[in-house]
Design a protein around this nucleic acid. Structure first.
Lengths: 146, 146
DNA sequence: AATAATAGTAAGGTATACCTAACAAAATGT
DNA sequence: ACATTTTGTTAGGTATACCTTACTATTATT
């Protein structure tokens, strides 16, 4: 039922997706991400990260050379960007349309981004834009205060 | 990272939640659900269901006596109802507000219901009602056809 | 340069969620 | 009633995602 990576596609698990996301973001910020940073961020052991990085490298998503550093491949970037885009769309919907605080919006986006289908995400994005274009989120927020 | 049941609460895993949901719905419909029905529904083996039912019974959510039948406890009902409510709210939002077809709406509700927080679900419910009360979903749908 | 601290790996362990194969008990068909 | 099929259980196996402990290699401190 679980853990079974989906069909043919690359399809990595929730955990690996999270680690890849962090690697991508760090590299974008020109930060030199190391295995231990991932361990600290997600509160998992160094050895678990070690294994996970080897897996991501096996999947062709990163280039990993131990202490020499972690780099992301083109394919890895594409995957990471997909996840980050989902995250951003969900976060925006929760925070800006539903007026849910940043922490909860982020936490829920983090979990849902791994399971939601592209079609649904696409619709949420369009709908969020529609709401903003028509100030629906403002009108909705007003009904919430009374 | 994964599979780790959350904090103190009852907290069962995605798979167990799905099975409990089916058990609850079958009992509501006065159907006599058996282990094999669960196996067929979720495409898993009889032995996996056997284990899962023992686990649900250990958690106090069902009463399981092999061939003698599956029954749900009060606590199990409460848990199942929570999940089913989340499912319903998500399904309605996807299908009626975003105009996503029933199959995709259902599939995504099935996955998200296990990870979304109560606060977010509550807001989605209120927002869906607000949309319907103001025919926002109809106006949105019109912009989609052009 | 020598020592101490940090970072990564390896080995071995746990728990979960599946699986198949073999078996036993119960339900069903004739 | 007897044979067949169905259903559930057991035993043993796989893969994942964690863990701890011990070890090694590198980096920093003095």
């Amino acid at each position: 039922m679980q853990g079974k990576p989906n069909k043919g596609k690359i399809m990595i698990t929730t955990g690996l997706e999270d680690y890849l996301e962090l690697i991508y973001n760090s590299i974008e910020k020109k930060e030199n991400i190391k295995a231990i940073d991932i361990a600290n961020k997600f509160n998992i052991s160094r050895s678990s990260v070690s294994e996970a990085l080897i897996r991501l490298a096996d999947l062709g998503l990163i280039i990993y050379n131990g202490r020499k550093g972690i780099d992301i491949t083109t394919e890895g970037k594409v995957e990471a960007e997909k996840i980050i885009k989902k995250h951003r769309i969900l976060y925006t919907f929760f925070n800006e349309i539903l007026s849910i605080n940043q922490t909860i919006s982020n936490k829920n986006a983090c979990k849902i981004e791994h399971v939601i289908d592209d079609e649904v995400i696409a619709k949420i994005e369009i709908f969020s834009n529609y709401c903003k274009a028509n100030s629906i989120e403002k009108k909705f927020k007003e009904t919430q205060n009374d």
